[in-house]
């Protein structure tokens, strides 16, 4: 039996890995889209002017 022979189990693993990879890719795209929408929809005009700058003032 050749060592390179493709077993049915390899196909199954490949299918599983491809599926998980696609889902992770989709998740990344979704987070990116969510972040974009959240940032563009938030009104930052009322945010404190000095927010986050006091620690590094010197």
């Amino acid at each position: 039996m050749s060592l390179n022979k493709e077993h049915e189990i390899h196909n199954r693993r490949r299918g599983r890995n491809t599926g998980v990879g696609l889902m992770l890719g989709g998740f990344v795209v979704l987070i990116l889209a969510l972040t974009y929408v959240k940032i563009t929809q938030t009104d930052f005009s009322n945010a404190p002017v000095n927010a986050g700058t006091s620690e590094v003032s010197d």
Binding site: L30, A33, L34, Y36, V37, K38, Q41
Partner: peptide, 11 residues
Amino acid sequence: VHPVIGFASIL
């Protein structure tokens, strides 16, 4: 609801 937020939330 914004479509992206709606889609993500239902998901």
